[in-house]
Design a binder for these strands. Structure first.
Lengths: 158, 158
DNA sequence: TTGTAATTGACAACATGTTGTCAATATGAG
DNA sequence: CTCATATTGACAACATGTTGTCAATTACAA
């Protein structure tokens, strides 16, 4: 039944919009937005400091989109660049002291917020939803960037 | 477990991005984008012609975002405005002949695409995912626009 | 009827994503 | 070592979403 998949697609668009709006509300008081918060998180969560292009790949966004946000965060003093011994241009993004403080505050706000969102929903249903969304996304990514060993699936890619 | 909900949120962001990219690929050959396609669909699917502000509410987007896309589509001749007997300013958006043709072509491309996406995924799992996403979205919307009779739930809203 | 509130479209400013292009900098085949 | 290729950051153009403001229009209560 493609009707249910179509419904899932539309619901994904809507939830995405509501999540962005809710995230903005959640961290606006500390000078953040959903996008900046996510970038701070991607920098903080990396096991080692990474260049911006790496962070973008981890986030599934374009290099340039993340670069601009990182540059804004750097201009605001939340992110700093450390020298990269392996590459003269690709500096490593790290959180500054104030960046860590702001991110910690965002995380403190996030915890009860996410708990409230999850309350009343079966954990097994959430896991199922994650699994379905991931399956669909991986199918889309496979169609977008066909590798040699699966290219026979494609019809034509100008 | 808030971990699974956090994973669901991140996965929603990623799937949203992949869906937009895939939709763009799907209809770029007929001069559409994901956003324009969705607006054409919202106009076509309405039981009666509606003003732009109504369409925007149906889509869950801001009035102005949809207005700009509709104006672009009107400039391209895919959408026309019919007089509204109940409101002198708020003209009713309708698909032109070429708009119908383009939309039909988009739908023809969408069908096998959605079938491919759904293939291999349990219908019951897709339904569960839709239900979870909808629950989360409704919770976010309730928190964003509290009505009188549920305002006691809110902690504080500056 | 009158005046207030809600709706609507127009316009502007801005945030966040995309793609494309360019030069600088690794990386690796030969 | 040398040259083709890939990666990276900078810059620009653009698509699509947001919010805010304004005037025109409609709806409704007094």
């Amino acid at each position: 039944m493609t009707l249910h998949m179509t419904t899932l697609i539309i619901e994904t668009f809507r939830l995405n919009g509501e999540l962005l709006a809710a995230g903005d509300r959640l961290v606006s008081a500390i000078g953040l937005t959903s996008a900046r918060w996510q970038v701070l998180g991607a920098i903080e969560m990396a096991p080692v400091p990474l260049p911006v292009a790496h962070i973008a790949r981890n986030m599934g966004l374009s290099r340039q989109a993340v670069q601009r946000v990182v540059n804004t965060l750097a201009a605001e003093g939340l992110v700093a660049f450390a020298d990269n011994p392996h590459h003269a241009r690709a500096k490593l993004a790290v959180l500054s002291t104030s960046g860590k403080r702001v991110f910690d505050e965002a995380m403190a706000r996030q915890l009860p917020w996410v708990e409230g969102l999850a309350k009343g929903i079966d954990v097994s249903d959430i896991k199922t939803a994650v699994s379905v969304l991931r399956s669909v996304r991986e199918k889309l990514q496979a169609a977008a960037k066909p590798r040699e060993d699966q290219r026979y699936v494609m019809e034509e890619h100008a």
